[in-house]
């Protein structure tokens, strides 16, 4: 079984803080990590390889430093990795990102499964998994919470939807996107880490994957970001500082009166 796992390097978003005076992002000390939701995709891919044999290949589009995320994937147990890096890829929206990943996957030859995280924690769109499937004309099963009965022709999956879960039979090859419920990602092993340090990770450019220049990066992206801003203060807050016990009694009294006035209690 040949499994491809597209991953993304993201800023450790919990660490992103806004400067309240300037309204800009404080980037100092913000670490770049492997998108946490991609770890579930990697875990499932490795489990399937352990069960069925074959190989797991991680692929990422990003700047040169994104190689660190691919090394992390190898440390977890992926067999090999490819970095897609080219100045022409910069500024890509989900359309142009899906295009590059799909072209690279085409270039890798035959495969049985493409397994993605449900979304990346920085962009939060969840559009690239289905986007890759669409470019490759493959079925996509999103929000997968359980993988069972995998053969080389089909797999049975549980897809989490609003009011329950669907049980799906999907013909391979297919694209799957994983949610957290699917598995507990393993930690990198010491041996894996040592291998990750040494392993050669090829870097492919637009030329290597036969990509059309006019479908790349910002130029190939249908969408444009026109404005970035901090949200406006929405409401007038009646704010009471309550530092000791009697403060708290008074503050709660006022809160209760406020709620009664609004007929909420």
């Amino acid at each position: 079984m040949r499994i491809i796992v597209p991953i993304k390097q993201v800023p450790e978003t919990n660490a992103v803080r806004m400067d309240s005076k300037t309204g800009t992002m404080i980037r100092d000390g913000v670490e770049a990590i492997i998108n946490p939701l991609d770890l579930y995709a990697i875990e499932i891919a490795i489990q399937l390889r352990q069960e069925h044999g074959g190989e797991v290949i991680a692929v990422s589009m990003g700047p040169a430093k994104a190689i660190a995320a691919l090394r992390e994937a190898i440390a977890m147990g992926c067999d090999s990795a490819v970095l897609l890096s080219d100045k022409a890829f910069a500024g890509a929206d989900t359309w142009a990102t899906s295009y590059v990943l799909a072209k690279a996957i085409e270039h890798m030859g035959d495969y049985d499964l493409i397994i993605c995280g449900e979304r990346a924690t920085d962009g939060d769109t969840g559009q690239v998994g289905p986007g890759i499937a669409s470019f490759l004309d493959l079925p996509v099963a999103s929000y997968i919470g359980k993988v069972e009965q995998v053969s080389n022709k089909t797999c049975r999956l549980h897809r989490l939807v609003e009011d329950g879960h669907e049980v799906l039979d999907v013909e391979l090859p297919a694209v799957l996107t994983m949610v957290k419920e699917v598995a507990d990602p393993r930690l990198p092993t010491l041996r894996g880490k040592q291998r990750a340090k040494k392993v050669d990770i090829p870097v492919w450019t637009a030329n290597d994957i036969d990509a059309d220049a006019d479908k790349l990066g910002l130029a190939g992206s249908p969408t444009r970001v026109v404005k970035i801003f901090r949200p406006q203060v929405a409401r007038q807050c009646e704010k009471i500082v309550a530092m000791d016990e009697s403060d708290i009694e008074q503050a709660v009294d006022k809160l209760v009166m406020f709620l009664q006035r609004k007929e909420l209690i």
């Binding site: 800023p11 978003t13 919990n14 920085d122 939060d124 970001v225 026109v226 970035i228 801003f229 901090r230």
Partner: peptide, 15 residues
Amino acid sequence: PAIGGNILATIKTPQ
């Protein structure tokens, strides 16, 4: 919301 939900972005599709 963008960048982990720390800011808002306005996006359009010009063409």
